[in-house]
Design a protein around this nucleic acid. Sequence first.
DNA 1: GTCTATAAGGCGATAGAC
DNA 2: GTCTATCGCCTTATAGAC
Lengths: 199, 199
Amino acid sequence: MATRIQQKNTAAILEAALDVFSTHGFRGATVDQIARAAGLSKPNLLYYFPSKEAIHTALLDGLLEAWLDPLRALDEAGEPLDEVLGYVRRKLEMSRDFPRESRLFANEIIQGAPRIGPYLSGELKDLVDEKSRVIRHWIGDGKIAPVDPYHLFFSIWALTQHYADFDVQVHAVLGSKDIDPYPDAQAHLEAIFTRMLRP
Amino acid sequence: MATRIQQKNTAAILEAALDVFSTHGFRGATVDQIARAAGLSKPNLLYYFPSKEAIHTALLDGLLEAWLDPLRALDEAGEPLDEVLGYVRRKLEMSRDFPRESRLFANEIIQGAPRIGPYLSGELKDLVDEKSRVIRHWIGDGKIAPVDPYHLFFSIWALTQHYADFDVQVHAVLGSKDIDPYPDAQAHLEAIFTRMLRP
DNA sequence: GTCTATAAGGCGATAGAC
DNA sequence: GTCTATCGCCTTATAGAC
């Protein structure tokens, strides 16, 4: 049974760690940095988590738990094009609302997925295999244009996560620090996938 | 005037450093790791480069020098759709042939572009602004369908670089370690942009 | 040009008082 | 539960012999 203080501090640590790990990667982050951002001393932080690795694992576990939800919601019984567009919209909203989580994930993958390799070829692949059959079924019925389902999913991931992972570049190129690129991005992606999938 | 030994060792160091930096990021990489991969002792490596930072800077400078070439080649006088498809093809070939360079760049951007911020809002933005005017010109002439030029370029970058940066995930999801995903990727991307831009 | 040895400091983690 | 002090390791970089 966690006390109110424990809950508060644990939450503050995870919040601070998400900030630091997503920006600097696992090795680039320091426990001191996380502790200061959480308003705690270093030994006090290590009173709540046994090690730096443990904090990182806790973050990753929490993330992977929710990472596949948008894809799970893709419904075979729905209107095919709407279902894909809905998935794209949910993924783009995740980039907008949880960019640090996206960068935490991206850091892991780029560095060879040392901690989540089994997840990729297990849970993730299984779900993608399943939903690929749905896509192929829709294609067979003439509901959407022919497309390689796996590369379709790669495209959705790449296009939506780009706005979180490469956020700095997006803003640098658009030039205006204050403008929200997401409304235009949403319209752009909807147009892409509509043209791509309309029979 | 560099001797043959100097040229050989400098090249070996940069080659090894590209391997290590692109996989582990700047902080995650160690000089010892790079030295061993280059077949040199640590002090010997530091005889050729004054610091770890200097090696990284040399790599980044060399990369940025060539990074924009595929976009520079986009020719206003060419056939619009072919020009865009050619750019996509060149970028995808860069992902296939230089995945470590792509990951080196991705690591920098994800971590907030601490070293290349000026490049992004300088050289890169200027070139994108220029080529965006070309895209808009083509749209005005009815040569390609209306599209936001900036988000078009974001899409090209996201879709092509994904195959280098998220290589591990691509292979995990496709399931077969030995299969080359690039032929299918090329066909997929050509179909996307053809459908997207045909008037 | 290349090595062994080592300085100097940062970092993860622990000890022990309060 | 939280702190100060510190251990021990790892890492960057240098000294100095060959």
